[in-house]
Design a binder for these strands. Structure first.
Lengths: 207, 207
DNA sequence: GTTGAACATGAGTAGTCCTCACATTTGCAA
DNA sequence: TTGCAAATGTGAGGACTACTCATGTTCAAC
């Protein structure tokens, strides 16, 4: 989850700190704009460099390859999402609270999804890249663990392994649902998210 | 759903029928082999042509681009899957029958998924290509309609639109679950599919 | 002021999908 | 059978893009 992970392996690291941080930000900002405008697939490394005001060569000093830029952005968005899940879940005290919190959580999360063209683009295309798929998998696991922790507290009798699996699947399918929802028209998308929510709430009740 | 759709728009069509059918088959077979060996991403058009025993130029007479080959393969696999769903569902007479049929269906479908390295590869990378995503969406819709038809028969009182949406989501999330399942270790994958099955059966019961 | 290491540069490399001008084959009328 | 136009096959090369590397520049420390 270290954001500098992107260049720990291959690239020169920790240069004259401040300037390099600025440059990394400039790169990410440029990439964000380009992805919002044209999609990550059509984003060209030369354009990123130009918009960030640096040369291609420098660009490759800060990120080892194109997918590292996208991965860094994905990880930032994921961190936002995780925080939103965490804060929604951590004051849950009973099943009724969980139902309410989860319902609100889905809406908030879906809102994040809808709001960010960059997030939408990255998540739609995510399966293309193995390293991005791994990021997504880890994210679902982390989110699943947050949910599982609450469930264990609320259902001390249940098989913990089963709870963990359900929680993981629920979180992972939540993201699948949102990806599906943004690829159909908005009304249907919203209805699908509601359907997912209903399904999960039923599962949570009877788990 | 016309398999020749791939070249109705751009390419010369309906040549001296027999030979061209053989060539199309040779191309698809070559592509299948290469995808199984190296993955669709690493599959090179030059390799496909070579293995099919034709030149690159000819290859492009039969398929307008690389993604058309993959799409054609995906459509074939989808047709298999749909048939399997159709035959599992069409003799369902009551809810108990549906539960049984659906349970078996998921296992069969997951078996198809596990068995074919080509299918696995194509489905993992599917999100990369917009046209493939559309194929997948249409497929989920078709499968959803098969399920919705049964549900309408069994639950004449329920809101048909809601049934349709649930059915669509169930089918779509089924594919998501299987994609997830094949990207973790086999034991966990199987357990996740079971969890999905349990969730859906509960939903079907109380819908 | 000198030096040398960190950093920046962008023309060039490698590797891909796909095209197109030309060669070959095929169907068929004379 | 033969001639010939249309259908089909060919593969070197075009166009494009992620990424590299030899060369130039900056700058901190002495």
């Amino acid at each position: 989850m270290d954001e500098n992970e992107a260049f720990t392996s291959k690239r020169r690291r920790a240069p004259s700190q401040k300037r390099s941080r600025e440059r990394v930000e400039a790169i990410l900002e440029a990439a964000t704009g380009l992805i919002a405008e044209t999609g990550s697939d059509a984003m060209r490394m030369s354009e990123v460099a130009e918009r960030a005001g640096i040369s291609i060569g420098s660009l490759y000093q800060y990120f080892p390859d194109k997918s590292a830029i996208i991965r860094t952005l994905a990880e930032r968005y994921n961190a936002d999402g995780r925080q939103c899940i965490e804060s929604a879940l951590d004051e849950v005290r009973d099943m009724a609270g969980l139902r309410e919190a989860f319902g609100g959580l889905i809406d908030t999360y879906y809102g994040l999804f809808l709001a960010g063209p960059v997030m939408r683009d990255i998540w739609s295309g995510m399966q293309a890249d193995k390293s991005l798929r791994e990021v997504e998998l880890l994210e679902s696991r982390a989110n699943g663990e947050l949910l599982a922790a609450v469930l264990k507290r609320l259902k001390p009798g249940a098989d913990p392994e089963m709870l963990a699996r359900s929680a993981f699947l629920i979180m992972s399918l939540g993201e699948s649902t949102m990806r599906l929802a943004i690829s159909v028209d908005p009304d249907e998308g919203a209805a699908l998210v509601e359907t997912y929510k209903r399904m999960v709430l039923r599962e949570l009740a009877e788990i």
